[in-house]
Design a protein around this nucleic acid. Structure first.
Lengths: 134, 134
DNA sequence: GATAGACCTTCCCACGATGGGAAGGTCAAG
DNA sequence: CTTGACCTTCCCATCGTGGGAAGGTCTATC
């Protein structure tokens, strides 16, 4: 199966498959006589693994670790859980940060009358001495 | 005031001040005889504006627009509000995406017993045919 | 004065994840 | 045998940020 077909079947773009191979996340794919990369069921399985892990926000570095754990059939599930928990904590921290931003911005938007007049609490707050949360 | 002092006073790193100047977000700073950049109260004001806007997640492109609005004392507040609302919608969309990720991951973490045993629903879900939300 | 250390300058490179696109080889269908 | 859809490698761009080298300047202390 060519790289394009593998991309369609896995949800990872051909561009990214090559990239993951280049950075060592994936073992170099076997090549055909025409030097085209050739993918089989096992590769597809790994690609789908990667696509799913990306979709829930794991970084490539984290996926490398997950893949290593996945390949080791003997590793304790504790190790996997710990990695996932670390990522979850990280996700939650980032969500909290963004919520704070959104909160602040919502307050500013609400306070701006948004008409013809030029005075605007949004710009006043960004430019002024006043705290943004006020 | 040197760039380092301006950085400390504004919360924008010296590195980024030069960068913002290079990409045209800021007008080139005036220079002293020794070619050091020199910042005054007005510049500091703009730098603080930028720092605050970054802190609530505006992109540099958005900040360029905000700065233009800020400099134009006559513009209707409607324009500012519209820009802020667009950003807010964008922020909220990203937050929703990340919450979905976190939800999924929380489910997986909860389902993993996390002990010595190797079987792990997290990896099973990432690797298997089953849906991630299951 | 000289020397040290803290500053400044420009320039290039890196990250992380992704895509665009050029230049060239290959395959399958008409 | 041409056409179009593939594939290959290679380089460049994005976005925001930082690291660091090589070199110039300022200030305080001896």
């Amino acid at each position: 199966m060519n790289i394009g077909a593998a991309a369609r079947a896995s949800g990872v773009s051909a561009k990214m498959i090559r990239h993951y191979e280049a950075i060592g996340l994936l073992k170099p794919a076997s090549r055909r006589d025409n030097s085209y990369r050739d993918y089989g069921g096992h590769d597809l399985h790994e690609l789908r693994f990667i696509a799913r892990a990306r979709r829930i926000g794991f970084s490539v570095a984290e996926i490398a670790a997950l893949l290593a754990l996945w390949r080791d059939r003997e590793r304790p599930s504790r190790d996997v859980k710990a990695l996932a928990e670390r990522h979850l904590v990280d996700l939650e921290r980032r969500i909290a940060e963004m919520r704070e931003m959104a909160e602040t911005l919502r307050g500013l938007v609400r306070s701006c009358h948004g008409d013809e007049r030029p005075d605007c609490p949004i710009l006043a707050s960004l430019g002024g001495e006043a705290s943004l949360t006020a």
